[in-house]
C-alpha cells in the first residue's frame, strides 16, 4: 500500500514510518502540520493516510480538520486517525459522511502492531475500524439508538467487534465461534438494524454508524 503519515512529533513519525515499512508497505510522504497534511493528501492520493489529530500551527484539531477537508474534496479517501485520546464526538464527525474508509484509534494501538496493520488494510479497503475504547464509551453512555436495543446480547458483542474493524473470521476467533455462525449473526443484525445494502463493506459501515448514532 502507498501510505501518507501525518504526525508532528518527529520520534513518533519516525517510529510509525519504520513500523509500516517493516510490514512491507510504502510511506510515500510525511507531513508535520495541518495545512501540509491537506496538501499531501490531495497531491499524493495515498491508499490510506495515518493522521494525528493535534498538530501545528494551533495545536488544536488541525489533523482531524485536514482529514475531513481532504475527504470532502475526495469522498471516501481512506484515513486512519490516531490520537492520545478518543472521543465519541470525533468518531461521529468522521463517520458522518457515510462513505466508509475511516479508522479512529488511540496512539498506543500501534503496540499491537499486527492488529494495527490489519486495521490499516481494512480502512484502505473502505472499511471502518474503531478503537475498543470508543466502543466501550459508547456502551457505557446513556441513550443509544432504539434499534440497537433490539439486538440480542450475542449480536451486540458481534456488532461491537465489527465496529472495532475485525473481520468475520477474527470475530469468530474472539468469541470462539465458527465463521458460519458469525455470518449468521451478522445477517441477523443487519436485518434488525434495517440495513439492506448488498455490499458487505458498506453494510458494516452502516451498522457501525447505527451503532454510533444516538437518536
Amino acid at each position: 500500500m502507498r501510505i501518507v503519515v501525518a504526525e508532528d512529533l518527529y520520534l513518533l513519525r519516525d517510529g510509525m514510518v519504520r513500523l509500516i515499512e517493516a510490514y512491507g508497505h510504502e510511506v510515500v510522504a510525511t507531513a508535520g502540520t495541518g495545512p501540509e497534511t491537506l496538501q499531501t493528501l490531495l497531491t499524493h492520493r495515498p491508499d490510506v493516510a495515518v493522521v494525528d489529530v493535534r498538530m501545528p500551527p494551533d495545536q488544536s484539531d488541525e489533523g482531524l480538520r485536514a482529514a475531513l477537508a481532504a475527504r470532502r474534496a475526495r469522498p471516501g479517501l481512506p484515513v486512519l486517525i490516531l490520537s492520545q485520546h478518543v472521543e465519541q464526538l470525533y468518531a461521529r464527525e468522521l463517520l458522518a459522511d457515510g462513505a466508509g474508509g475511516i479508522g479512529y484509534f488511540l496512539k498506543e494501538s500501534v503496540f499491537e502492531a499486527e492488529q494495527f496493520i490489519d486495521a490499516l488494510e481494512r480502512v484502505a479497503g473502505g472499511g471502518t475500524a474503531m478503537d475498543p475504547e470508543v466502543i466501550a464509551k459508547l456502551l457505557a453512555s446513556g441513550s443509544t439508538d432504539r434499534r440497537i436495543e433490539r439486538l440480542t446480547e450475542r449480536e451486540h458483542s458481534v456488532l461491537a467487534l465489527m465496529a472495532e474493524g475485525l473481520s468475520n473470521q477474527a470475530i469468530g476467533k474472539r468469541l470462539f465461534l465458527s465463521d458460519s455462525a458469525i455470518s449468521k449473526y451478522t445477517t441477523a443484525l443487519f436485518g434488525r438494524l434495517g440495513i439492506t445494502d448488498d455490499d458487505d463493506n458498506n453494510r458494516r459501515v452502516l451498522a457501525v454508524l447505527a451503532y454510533l448514532n444516538k437518536a
Binding site: V53, R54, Q59, S60, D61, Q84, H85, E87, Q88, L89, K137, A140, S141, G142, S143, K214
Partner: peptide, 28 residues
C-alpha cells in the same frame, strides 16, 4: 490529563468539550 485539562477543551472549546462529556455520560 483529562482531570487537569480535557484535551477537547483545547482542541474545540467549551461547547464541544461539554458535548463530548455529555456523550460519555451514562445519562441522557
Amino acid at each position: 490529563i483529562k482531570g487537569i485539562n480535557p484535551p477537547l477543551l483545547n482542541e474545540r472549546g467549551l461547547l464541544d468539550a461539554v458535548r463530548a462529556f455529555a456523550l460519555d455520560s451514562p445519562l441522557e
